[in-house]
Nucleic acid binder design. Structure first.
Lengths: 217, 217
DNA sequence: GTCTATAATGAGATAGAC
DNA sequence: GTCTATCTCATTATAGAC
């Protein structure tokens, strides 16, 4: 991997990689905070501490940059989820609560672990899911893993229609995102609550999904 | 109400009211489709079929216009929800499923009834809920009714903490919004499904809320 | 790779004619 | 009330110096 032909081909210097990472990280925060249209390349550059032109240099156009940062985290998160699923399957037969736990817990623990970029990613996903403009991006980044989990759940409930499983998945994801990025709303509606509640979230989703799957067909 | 002093004070003509309504309706669709920053006054004017200057004349600044259209529908929807709650209470003691039904059904039926403006309103609410920038607007437009429903639910489950009830409410609302504005995702994940499923949505929320309330405290 | 400067576009808001 | 025209500002993207 470490070829020494820096003369012939451009080998990204450590400095370059660091700049690129700073730009992507800043873009993540700004896009999440203000949405695609509300974010400006200037804000991203300012937050990253680089010059405006560098953003285009490392991230391409605004749309390419957006695509880049969503795909980056989506890929990482998908791996974590699939790994959790495989680990759980290795230790015991999968049940509904475990499957949903494998989907929900990796992300929520990252988001609640103090990494603002994972909180930001949740908002990004909300933006992508809400806007049909990002339909292709959503399909590319989310669908493979979502389909995988849907198939696992469907295998447990052979009588349920595919639309019911998909609906449960979408509802669960939306509750998960609300849990992270609308925590301020929960707090506003109930002053003085604990506000952690990952197990509570998973219990909510499990009971909801179970209810619609067992009443189906 | 119909005073005849059109000479002294400006009495809005029928034409004016119609123009104003067209502008508000167009703004609703454009804001919902592209978000606050992504929407342009020019697009709104074009969709409404009026000149650009008229938007500012009838809607004020861009922020005022946004506030106006959100508050308008939120007020109407709140009335429908409270009316449903009172009607249900009059006929039978309230249970959890009924309370959630009174909250969810009025909106989803409007959105699924073919009125694109109510679908658009769902997207607007998603934008408002996701962006802390609209915290005050959310508090002004949503909190009173949400608190009312939270209180009704809390009365049924005296042992549950207030944070749990609020969390259930937020999860249910997010699932409801996902049901409407991410219907395309459910369809994408399960080709050929029916895609109506209001009862299914209410069953999901009821089971989820019930689960976290009964396991609490 | 990095930075400066600028081009080209589109935005919101407003003044004034009709 | 309506419409035209324009002001001012911020945006993305890019060309070129170092």
């Amino acid at each position: 991997m470490f070829v020494l032909e820096k003369q012939r081909q451009r080998a990204p210097s450590a400095r370059s990689l660091q700049t690129r990472a700073r730009i992507l990280d800043a873009a993540e925060l700004v896009f999440a905070e203000r949405g695609f249209e509300g974010a400006s390349i200037r804000d991203i550059a300012h937050l990253a501490g680089v010059q405006v032109g560098l953003v285009a240099h490392h991230g391409g156009s605004k749309e390419e940059l957006f695509h880049l940062i969503v795909a980056r985290r989506a890929g990482e998160l998908s791996r974590l989820r699939i790994n959790a699923l495989e680990a759980a399957r290795a230790s015991a037969p999968l049940d509904l609560a475990t499957i949903l736990d494998c989907f929900i817990r990796p992300y929520v623990e990252l988001a609640q672990g103090g990494d603002s970029h994972w909180v930001a990613y949740g908002r990004l996903v909300a933006h992508v899911s809400a806007d049909p403009r990002w339909r292709d991006l959503a399909a590319e980044c989310f669908d493979r893993t979502a389909q995988r989990f849907i198939a696992e759940i469907a295998a447990l409930f052979p009588g349920a229609g595919p639309g019911t499983v998909a609906a449960g998945q979408v509802y669960a994801v939306s509750a998960m995102l609300a849990h992270v990025h609308s925590a301020w709303r929960i707090g506003a509606l109930s002053p003085g609550s604990d506000a952690v509640g990952l197990d509570r979230l998973i219990a909510f989703c499990t009971a909801g999904v179970y209810a619609i799957l067992t009443s189906d067909g």
